[in-house]
């Protein structure tokens, strides 16, 4: 069973420390002892969403904001650059 670490009780993502396959149950460690069923393959070191997160909501890791959901995320979904946006260094969004 792949393992994932939750770093803060408020976090809505966990970091996998094994490679996970779609359909596998992932055991959460650290600040949670729950389990989450992976909806997709999640590579080693990548993050899985552990709580429903609406589009535009903060994505939290270490209890801190690491970005915003660029679309809604389901628990078990791979959370990465395709669905989480940075809010920093965004010259592309700066008002001219």
């Amino acid at each position: 069973m792949p393992r994932a670490i939750v770093l803060h009780r408020n976090d809505n993502v966990a970091t996998l420390i094994d490679a996970g396959r779609a359909g596998e149950t992932c055991s959460l460690q650290g600040e949670s002892a729950a389990e989450v069923k992976l909806l997709q393959d999640v590579p080693f070191g990548h993050k899985v969403c552990i709580r429903e997160t609406p589009a535009g909501a903060d994505v939290l890791k270490y209890g801190q904001v690491i970005g915003k959901a660029s679309r809604s995320l389901k628990a078990g979904e791979h959370a990465h650059t395709h669905n989480v946006e940075s809010a920093r260094g965004r010259g592309d969004q700066a008002k001219r």
């Binding site: 996998l16 970005g67 959370a79 990465h80 650059t81 946006e85 809010a87 969004q93 700066a94």
Partner: peptide, 22 residues
């Protein structure tokens, strides 16, 4: 006028699971 993602985090950072500079 650009998003720094791709330069920092770098392509290998992102392959390693880092999603944002934050």
């Amino acid at each position: 006028g650009m998003d720094i993602r791709g330069t920092n985090p770098t392509p290998d950072n992102m392959r390693g699971g880092l999603t944002t500079i934050e």
